[in-house]
């Protein structure tokens, strides 16, 4: 465990909590893509099945349980409790265009052709693109609430910090996971445009709105 990995995990946790609190405090999930949140719940579910088969550390187990619980809570708030505030008309990204190719790819390119490993690979590939419905929604409405941008910032920062973690681990531990690294690079690149807007607009106190 290095500092980049730890801050990456904490940044991921911060993103998840920010989103939950935003929905809970405002009693509304306006501007949030339920589809992205469903995909994240699927990501955590398929990745953390190893909770049943292997124990790494108390930290590892508790973080996994927290991520899974929070992602299900978020989905519950969007599709059940605050369903009336869910902006389904703008959440029109076709998720099958992500899930089907990602599913196929995880069968073709993986470290080991075993059920758990294929599901882990699926979750890594899916996570890298799971934010697309959310970004698509923002590009469709042309704006995002500031709190939503903080959520996206921490979510993007998490994968960027993981990239530094992987460089660190490569040099100091000889650890290298091509699948995670390639997917992590793709995932981070998807946030670059958003990072630019976040720094040039949101951090200067302006609302994130896109030119018409």
């Amino acid at each position: 465990m290095n500092i980049f990995r730890l801050t990456g995990d904490l940044s991921h946790l911060a993103a998840i909590i920010i989103l939950l609190l935003k929905i809970w405090k405002t009693r509304s999930c306006a501007g949030i893509s339920g589809k992205s949140q469903l995909l994240f719940a699927l990501v955590f579910t398929t990745r953390y099945l190893d909770l049943f088969t292997s124990f790494i550390s108390l930290y590892n187990t508790s973080m996994k349980l927290i991520y899974v619980a929070c992602s299900y809570a978020t989905v519950y708030l969007i599709y059940m409790k605050f369903k009336a505030t869910y902006d389904g008309n703008h959440d029109t990204f076709r998720v099958e265009f992500l899930v089907v190719p990602v599913g196929g790819l995880s069968f073709l390119v993986n470290h080991d052709f075993s059920p758990l490993e294929i599901l882990w690979t699926f979750s890594i590939y899916l996570e890298s693109v799971a934010i697309l419905p959310q970004l698509f929604m923002i590009s469709k409405t042309g704006e995002a609430e500031t709190i939503t941008t903080h959520y996206l910032f921490f979510l993007g920062l998490y994968r960027a910090l993981y990239l530094i973690n992987w460089i660190w681990r490569y040099y100091f531990e000889g650890f290298f996971d091509l699948i995670a690294v390639v997917a992590g690079v793709v995932q981070t690149i998807l946030y670059c445009d958003f990072f630019y807007l976040y720094v040039t607009k949101v951090l200067k106190g302006k609302k994130l709105s896109l030119p018409a």
Partner: peptide, 10 residues
């Protein structure tokens, strides 16, 4: 070392 199950990252 190449990563494989069990994965130690989150």
């Amino acid at each position: 070392i190449v990563a494989k199950t069990p994965h130690d990252e989150l």
